[in-house]
Amino acid sequence: MPPHIDTESAPVPESTPAAAREVMISFDDVSKRWGDNEVLRSLNFDVKSGEKVSIIGPSGSGKTTILRILMTLETPDTGLVTVNGETLWDVKPGSRPKETKQMRATRRHVGMVFQQFNLFPHMTALENVLEAPTRVLKLDKEEARQRSVELLEMVGLSKHLDHKPPKLSGGQQQRVAIARALAMRPKVLLFDEPTSALDPELIGEVLNVIRELAVSTDMTMLMVTHEMRFAEEISDRVVMFDHGSVVEQGPPGEIFKAPKEDRTKSFLHAVLSH
C-alpha cells in the first residue's frame, strides 16, 4: 500500500532553490579515529536546510560514523559540528568532551532511523511512536496519541497499532521506526542503510515511505544507502565517500552518469554490475 502523507501535518517544500537556503548541518574539520584506523580525516561537509543528501561509498569508509556523530552516539576526536546553527560538538584536540545541556538541546533537531530498526520490543507499535512525544515533548496524551496514529497510518500500518515488533515483518518494523522518528518532529532525519537488513521483497515498501517524505516534506534528510537507483531518484545531492573524506559530490545525474574521480567510477562499477 503506497503511503499517503497528509499535507497538513507535513509542510510542503518551499520553492526556494536549495542553494539559497541556510546551512542546516555543518562539519568543520571533524576527525575521528579508532586506534590506527582514521575513520574521518578533517572532514568539511555541509547540508542545507531541506536538502536531501545521499552518502555512498565502500564499506568501512566512515558513512555510519558521520550519522552517529550527528546523533551524538559517537564522539569526534576534534572538530566543530553544528545543527540548525547551534553547536552540537566543539571538540578541541586532546580534550574529552562531555554531554552538555547545549548538546542535548541541539540533538532535539535530529532524528535517526537505524539499520536494525531498534524498536522497543516490549512496546506495541503505537507505544513505540507515542513514547518520546509524551515523555520528552510532554505533549498532551490524547493529542500525542492522535498524531501517533496518524503517523502510523501514513506509513501504512493502521492495522498494526497494537502489535509488538516481534510480530511484525522487517519492513513493517522499519516503517514503525520511521514513524517513531517523525513523531519528534525533527528538522533533520538520518537514515543509516534503512533497507539493508530487509528481505528484498520488503525493501520497496520502506523506500516508498522515504520517497514520500522526500518529496512532500521540508525536512533535511541525510541518508546512507546502497540503493543507488533510489538515491539517484530522490537526492538533491550525492556524496561519494572513501577513507574518511569526500571524494566527490554533486547532483545525482552528474555523480551517477558522469563521475569524475576514478574511485567513484570503480565503486559504482562494482556496485552496479551486480
Binding site: 546523533m71 551524538t72 516490549h122 515523555r135 520528552v136
Partner: peptide, 24 residues
Amino acid sequence: GQWEAAKALNLPIGATWTRIILPQ
C-alpha cells in the same frame, strides 16, 4: 541498539532506564 534508539529519541536517562532498559 536499545540505548541508541532511546538517545536518538532524546529520552532522558531516567526514562531510558525505567521505560526502555529495565522492563526488558
